[in-house]
């Protein structure tokens, strides 16, 4: 299990673990599917961002995110950062903000979302958009 806040800022390297490609800027989460879809990598002197599919990640550890040999840039999704998102129930009532999320590094599955109003299981996630993380009323 890893926390999103632990992954942000980690170095991203090639399959040899030595070729540094950039740092993790954020992770794009598909809330409806309950998985991490992309790693957004910040690189270069102008801090440009590129997206890499989570399937292209070979391993994640405290030392960094190591990509597979066949990793290629992915078409970037709209950057929707789970961290800090407003939480809104499907009934239209605000329920705090997202503080962190636990993710299984092997699969990218979201295991739990931690908010200012408590923990949310992944089964309650409906969608993450530009306004809020929408969750099932519980």
């Amino acid at each position: 299990m890893m926390l999103l806040t632990e992954v942000y800022g980690l170095p991203v390297t090639g399959p040899d673990g030595r070729t540094r490609l950039g740092t993790v800027a954020s992770l794009s989460v598909d809330a409806g599917a309950g998985t991490v879809r992309q790693v957004r990598v910040r690189r270069g002197p102008f801090r440009k961002e590129a997206a890499v599919s989570w399937d292209a990640v070979r391993s994640v550890g405290p030392d960094g995110v190591r990509l597979r040999a066949d990793a290629a840039a992915d078409a970037p999704r709209r950057p929707r950062d789970l961290l800090g998102s407003l939480v809104l129930t499907e009934a239209g009532r605000e329920r705090g903000r997202v503080l962190d999320a636990a993710v299984a590094p092997e699969t990218g599955r979201v295991l739990a979302v931690f908010t200012t109003r408590g923990e949310l299981p992944p089964a309650r996630l409906l969608g993450l958009g530009d306004h809020a993380l929408v969750v099932r009323s519980g």
Partner: peptide, 10 residues
Amino acid sequence: RPVVTLGGDA
């Protein structure tokens, strides 16, 4: 009041 989709977009 914002109009928001279940996908989270206003």
